[in-house]
Amino acid sequence: MPPKAEDVPKNWPPALPYLRTPSHSSSLTPDHISSLRKRPNDTLSIPANTPKGPCPLVKITPITTPSHPANGQSGLFAAKDLKPGTFILQYLGEIHPTTSVHPDGSLPVDPHANSNYDLSLDRELGLGIDADKRGNEARFINDYRGVADKPNAEFKEIWDERRKERGMGVWVLPEGKSGKGKGVRKGEEILVSYGRGFWGARKGDGEG
């Protein structure tokens, strides 16, 4: 049965599963699960009043500006003014190992290696969150390059007290000593930095 309109955000792709909680890959080991359930020091918690389901702070909007690198696709825009340091929403997708061994024992392979929606959660343990096949509004956040002079938001690790589990969240940049975080005004696109690793891996692919 297809989801009801009120159960998914406006402009959500109808063929893509919408997540309210993270999805766990069947390839996760007991050690991975144990690590996910240990809160790292200094990790911020998701605010207790954060709703599950469509986020009221954002809206998915088709991009029609020819000069925008994501023209013809969609971006995530602020539905209201967001102050510096505001928690926006969690980045939901499939939590998975970044490498896994093929059943025949051949060299390790990473089925998520070519995904444009795969976010690193723990490099040391080899854990990622991939929103390619399923996710929430956060998968529509674009990189600031070619759109603005600098990002206005960032990815930061979070702790979900309700699930007792680590994850990644999207936050408005704080003000900071340099005043780099100005907040996000209603109607502005939420933009982050994908990082050099993302673009370096895609040189020659004709993307971005």
Rank of each mutant, 00 (worst) to 15 (best):
S23A: 14
G146I: 02
K182P: 00
G126P: 03
S115D: 15
P30V: 09
W171A: 09
T50W: 01
K4Q: 13
P108S: 13
L107P: 06
T99G: 00
K133N: 12
I95S: 04
V172M: 08
V109K: 14
N152A: 09
D118W: 03
S178V: 08
R162I: 06
A201R: 15
A15C: 15
P69M: 07
P30Q: 11
P111M: 09
D149C: 07
P174Y: 02
Q90T: 12
A138H: 05
G208C: 02
T64H: 12
S35H: 13
E157S: 10
K156M: 14
K180S: 10
F77E: 12
A113H: 07
V170G: 05
G179Q: 08
R20S: 14
D104Q: 07
S34D: 15
L107N: 14
P17L: 03
V101D: 12
G85N: 08
P174F: 00
A70C: 13
S26F: 08
T61Q: 12
Y194W: 09
P151Q: 10
E161H: 01
S67L: 07
G126L: 03
S45F: 02
T98M: 12
R185K: 15
K10Y: 13
W159F: 05
D149W: 03
V170P: 05
D205Q: 12
T50V: 02
E189I: 01
P69C: 05
G183D: 10
W199M: 09
L119A: 11
V172Q: 09
D110T: 01
D118A: 15
S34Y: 01
A131G: 11
P111I: 08
K80G: 09
D160R: 00
L127I: 05
A113N: 01
L16I: 14
A201C: 03
Y117L: 09
N152S: 10
R20I: 14
N142K: 05
D110M: 00
W159G: 03
G181M: 06
V170H: 06
N114Y: 15
G206Y: 01
P108R: 09
S23I: 00
A48K: 13
D7F: 02
K177L: 13
E188L: 03
A15T: 12
I190A: 03
P22N: 02
R37T: 13
K164H: 15
H102R: 13
L125K: 15
A153M: 04
E175R: 15
R166Y: 01
G126V: 00
T86E: 12
G105D: 10
P108Q: 11
N41T: 10
S23T: 10
D132K: 15
C55I: 01
P108N: 09
G183V: 00
